[in-house]
């Protein structure tokens, strides 16, 4: 398949390893991966804050750009950006674009479109999974990432308490209501720590920023890794 990789701005600037890893996994599965030039931001922060027109403007720009070579699919290592474009935008401001039917979050593309569960990765360690809200409730992604993780050699998946409770990031909420956001993050970090896992993973980079931020402040040794980084690791690579 000809796949265009959608690299959300927070992935580009904060967690580039996730984009590199996603590209590597898809290429290893035999697909052609391109990174369309000119990508900036999908506008999700504006959407989240209620500035729909600013969002729509950026969203349309990005969708046009991603669709320029008419790829078979566009894949992003972020559930929230995909949900903003594919679910929330259409519902709230009638956003429509021919690309939306071919736009996927990374794990759902693997499990639902390619029908893959074993990508040949090896990642020794205990991992606990955090369900990002937009992936979970917007895109209905719950079992897919867990199946992918269970198929990774050397990896043990352990569930934390309430893996589907919000980590407290919430976009602009994280800085507009920092105390509440941090309290939610604390609860998530406690659940992660109590699971006994050495790694916490998610398909949402912004959740990882929040969870990692709290874990590091608590002096925890638990590391936050993006799903793609786990799936890219193994014989063929360095884990991104």
């Amino acid at each position: 398949m000809r796949i265009a990789l959608f690299v959300p701005c927070h992935v580009d600037l904060l967690r580039p390893g996730a984009a590199r890893a996603a590209a590597r996994v898809l290429r290893r599965l035999g697909h052609e991966v391109r990174v369309p030039e000119g990508q900036t931001c999908c506008g999700q922060p504006a959407l989240n804050a209620g500035y729909f027109r600013d969002f729509a403007c950026l969203a349309r720009r990005l969708l046009d750009l991603l669709d320029r070579d008419e790829p078979d699919a566009v894949v992003a290592p972020s559930g929230s950006c995909v949900a903003a474009l594919r679910v929330t935008g259409p519902r709230h401001l009638g956003l429509s674009h021919p690309l939306l039917d071919r736009l996927y979050e990374f794990s759902e593309f693997l499990t639902r479109v390619l029908g893959v569960t074993d990508v040949g990765a090896r990642f020794p360690g205990t991992v606990t999974w955090h369900d990002g809200c937009h992936a979970l409730r917007g895109l209905r992604i719950r079992e897919g990432p867990r199946r992918l993780l269970r198929a990774v050699r050397g990896l043990t998946l352990v569930e934390m308490e309430e893996p589907d409770e919000c980590c407290g990031f919430g976009g602009t909420f994280a800085v507009k209501m920092p105390e509440v956001s941090a309290a939610l993050g604390e609860r998530k970090a406690r659940a992660v720590a109590a699971s006994g896992a050495a790694y916490v993973s998610a398909t949402e980079p912004s959740c990882l920023v929040q969870i990692e931020g709290v874990l590091r402040r608590r002096g925890s040794a638990v590391r936050a890794v993006h799903l793609a980084e786990i799936l890219a690791s193994g014989e063929g690579g360095d884990g991104g």
């Binding site: 690299v7 580009d12 590199r20 990508q39 105390e179 604390e186 920023v209 709290v214 402040r217």
Partner: peptide
């Protein structure tokens, strides 16, 4: 105040 800040990547993906 309650969290470590994420550091911007060098290099960024692009």
């Amino acid at each position: 105040a309650a969290r470590e800040a994420p550091r911007m990547a060098r290099p960024a993906f692009h």
